[in-house]
Design a protein around this nucleic acid. Structure first.
Lengths: 212, 212
DNA sequence: GTCATCATGTAAGCCGTTACATGATTGC
DNA sequence: GCAATCATGTAACGGCTTACATGATGAC
């Protein structure tokens, strides 16, 4: 899970551990608040496995030489902190070709792809899958949610041997029911969008958000 | 977490491990699918700690002697399986007085009471808390959710340094935003109901559920 | 007699955490 | 020079899973 996320982030851009954690925290919901005691060992494992490699700090990797302004990022950076924040003892990692293959593999893996966290992380990087694999991921999630909804519904209906629930437990289950139904609708929308070919996934209209 | 749930269930009724797992599975969302490899060791730990005790199989505990029909349960039971399904080598556990104290303590503990699972399990047994402790639990959850919502909102608004999100990640975050807002509303309803003294918590009207 | 289910347990391992230790760089 | 933040790591431990091992009971 963590390794999947690391590979996913490094596929976009080379990063060092500390920065990686910040990205992970932004990606929250899933994987927010992962600890360094977990992150750094994961990086070493991936490095030993050849999925990522540490960059030589002497020669920077950017396609452009690092002489002066680096695209538009500079203007914003100047405001918040000085230029060239670089060169601590930090180790920047880059994903390797086998690493990209591993990312694909982990994204498609069935192991733990169903639960909330597993799905969230996979969805965050599913742009690296082809449409078919993506649909497979969505359908699996859908089935899982449908099953979950079924179980809640079953626990909620007073069929036969069912013990009666206290009000708090009942409220919990009703809420669970509602949330799961919404999750299902969402996944259905993702599937529909994927099938339509157009990736107009950003469906959520939501009650006017002029507040901020 | 598991121990809390075990104590909560045993507070209602004495049970053996296998049956306990079934209840846990029904309580799903949180703690559904917990494994025996996790459950039995937990029972032993609790027993060693004196929080629960195994019943002497010779003398059953029920307030009524076990001669023939045991309340209304019998009629239903007769249909699905024969009477007296009892007496394997199963070990029935009962909660002790120190166990009840431990249950209280765990319910009020701040450790891990905020996340989805922790809150769900506590809510399922919060009837064993007094109104004040319950409100404290709800308020803590509320604060946690508010903070989470804030982080999502922040990641979602294109402020300054923010990298632009791909469509899938954006959809994920928007969904997260929506779900978290609903969670907040729900907790607010719980708090309001608690404050009103009446425990009319079962608010959810939900779109007509004639389907089943 | 044999299969499904009930029932209890152990061992190995995974994945993560907390707490601790260390040190570089920069702003003031 | 000192504190805040950036940055990397290790050690111990926690909680849960999987896979395995075992056996009793009841249905057919």
């Amino acid at each position: 899970m963590l390794e999947l996320a690391i590979l996913g982030l490094l596929h976009e851009e080379s990063l060092h551990g500390y920065e990686l954690k910040k990205r992970l925290d932004e990606m929250l919901g899933a994987l927010a608040g992962v600890s360094y005691g977990s992150l750094y060992p994961a990086l070493r494992r991936l490095e030993r496995a050849g999925a990522i490699e540490a960059l030589d700090p002497a020669e920077p990797v950017s396609p452009f030489p690092v002489t002066g302004s680096i695209s538009g990022e500079t203007a914003a950076a100047r405001v918040r902190r000085r230029l060239t924040p670089s060169r601590r003892k930090r180790k920047e990692y880059r994903i390797t070709d086998p690493g990209v293959a591993l990312l694909q593999e982990l994204l498609e893996a069935e192991q733990g792809a169903d639960d909330d966290r597993g799905f969230a992380v996979r969805l965050a990087f599913c742009r690296y899958l082809d449409t078919e694999a993506r649909l497979q991921l969505f359908e699996r999630r859908r089935a899982w949610l449908a099953e979950k909804l079924d179980r809640v519904r079953n626990a909620l209906t007073p069929t036969g041997n069912r013990r009666r629930l206290d009000l708090y437990t009942r409220s919990l289950m009703e809420h669970d029911d509602e949330v799961t139904r919404r999750d299902l609708e969402w996944v259905d929308a993702l599937i529909a969008a994927e099938r339509a070919g157009a990736h107009e996934v950003s469906h959520t209209p939501i009650t006017s958000r002029e507040g901020q």
